[in-house]
Design a protein around this nucleic acid. Structure first.
Length: 286
DNA sequence: ATGGGTACCTGTCTGC
DNA sequence: TGCAGACAGGTACCCA
């Protein structure tokens, strides 16, 4: 579900409350995608130092509280159907709430019906540079990620260099996340529409000018989605329970058979790598 | 190295 | 009404 805008909206909705919160207990429900990777007791008594985002991951570095335990934090992924929220009162966890971090600032819960999400302990060097995980699974998950789309270094030249030689369709290259992060199935279709590029175009054969347009389109679309509070197709909510509104702004996503808002042609759907792609044949070219 | 397919899991909707 | 099948925002992993 959540692509970069939804993850960032989620982050913004929890960061103030969690920053400085002291962990009192950890409760696990059904297994998520990966095991937590540490004993829950390891977390107790530590404070959440911050809530950061990298791609579609959230990273919560923990103060080590002067304990003998290793320095580290929690890496969260919302998968396809995950969302975060704070439990009200003493409500028992719902059937889809598989992780709870009880703190002195409230009880953070991950709700995730499909359980493609994850919460993973990440080690970081106690005196290492920065606060990101340095070893283990959490570090490995972050290691292959591409550039952040809002990084000033991300532009057409960067994109073109990362796509060079790749023969997969551009839509699939964007989803792979090793060139630029955060673009999922919705925003890949939307960005390609905005850039006027056919999703079937060979990634490595897109010229400099069109790469520039695509990089700009990715930033523009993600920015608009962020300002709209993300996209809520079904279950996405931020931690305040707010829906996103970008689905009303989508030009092609989930609009198969409807009129293109730009040219009046008919929006088409096709399958690429088992995922639906939406595009307008009248506005997008190879 | 790249690319294709499979797998994980559950809910919802469509069509027969 | 029941039921099978398709499909859903992600991505690691295995094999060619």
């Amino acid at each position: 579900m959540p692509e970069l805008p939804e993850v960032e909206v989620t982050r913004l909705s929890v960061v103030e409350r969690l920053r400085g919160a002291r962990i009192a207990s950890v409760t696990l429900g059904k297994p998520l995608r990966w095991p937590l990777g540490c004993k829950p007791e390891t977390l107790i008594g530590r404070r959440v130092a911050d809530v950061l985002r990298r791609g579609k991951y959230l990273w919560m570095p923990l103060d080590d509280a002067g304990s003998i335990a290793p320095a580290g934090g929690l890496l969260l992924h919302l998968g396809m159907s995950g969302s975060l929220g704070f439990a009200e009162g003493d409500a028992a966890p719902g059937p889809w709430q598989h992780f709870e971090l009880a703190t002195d600032r409230g009880r953070l819960r991950l709700t995730d019906p499909r359980r493609f999400g994850a919460v993973v302990w990440g080690d970081r060097a106690a005196d290492g540079p920065g606060s990101w995980p340095s070893t283990g699974r959490a570090a490995a998950l972050l290691a292959t990620l591409g550039i952040e789309p809002f990084d000033p270094a991300f532009d057409g030249a960067w994109l073109r260099a990362r796509l060079r030689g790749r023969r997969v369709p551009i839509k699939q290259a964007l989803l792979a996340g090793d060139a630029v992060v955060g673009v999922g199935n919705i925003y890949a279709s939307e960005a390609l529409f905005e850039a006027g590029i056919d999703p079937r175009a060979e990634a490595g054969r897109i010229g400099p000018l069109r790469c520039e347009r695509l990089a700009a389109a990715i930033r523009a679309v993600l920015g608009r989605a962020l300002r709209a509070g993300g996209t809520t197709l079904r279950d996405f909510r931020d931690a305040h329970g707010m829906n996103g509104a970008f689905q009303h702004e989508a030009q092609v996503y989930d609009r198969e058979g409807q009129r293109c808002r730009r040219c009046g042609g008919v929006v088409r759907r096709l399958l690429q790598g088992q995922r639906s792609t939406y595009f307008c044949p009248g506005c997008q070219f190879r």
